[in-house]
Amino acid sequence: MRPGLRFGCAAAAFLAAAPLVAAPESALKPEEMKTVIVLDELSMPTPGEFFAAINKVERPNWSQLGRAAGPLATTNRAQASLNLGTRVADGFIAVEAQDGQQVKNIGKDIIDLAKGLGVSQSILGRGNSIGDFAENNDWSALKEELDATENEVKQQMADQKDDELVALVTIGAWLRGVQAASAVVALNYKPETAKLLRQPAIVETLVARVDALPDRLKKNELVGKVHDGLVEIQTDVAPTAPPSADTVKAIQKTTSQLIDAISGPAAATPTPAK
């Protein structure tokens, strides 16, 4: 194994039995970079990946970052889509907190929101799986199941010609993940944790996704707020250095306002205590 790379024991043993391939030295050509494929389900990281990175430099009290569910029923499909995304991220937070009951509650909310959006009954199986894994404290499986559930809901939304709402699910999940992470960083500021909040490429993609929405959705008051909030965050994370403590607080404030607007004040997120 090359110096600087560290992988686990099982992976190392697996690799020891396999031929290794040297990495090439040549860089990508500009014309190659123009052909890049951006896929929601592969190019956008899950909140679980984000939280895994945070756990390497900090030991947050994830249970303090959980929140009660706000009202789920709404005729505003944009809001329901955004809210569904926030609940997926809540699921990852509950998994980090190893709170099985909360995971089950969130799984039920995800299914209810999905049904409200017209997603077919087949998603019910996912809800059952989430419940089963939570019952068995299988936290590792739950991370994969939450990822799979989000993708399945999005796929079914796309199948029923609701492609534009898919972007809102992604945005909701990302906003809630950043809100929780910024709360962790604000509580105990460290540049190495703060730099994880610097995700300019992701924000740029999300702003572009909102810009690409049809006019009728862009005129939705909540979608407009989300767009403006994302642009604000885009400005905050633009410098190359890790966000300062003040910038982290600004990101936390912006994301908290957006999450309150999406999920309702009843779901206000508690600020973790030191």
Binding site: V36, E41, P45, E144
Partner: peptide, 26 residues
Amino acid sequence: KIRDGFYFGTLETGKSALVEVNLFAG
């Protein structure tokens, strides 16, 4: 943890596909 998302593509010999991902430090 295995991501649920995936990319399917078709390639000719010697040709490549380039996919964007966003990774976290550490």
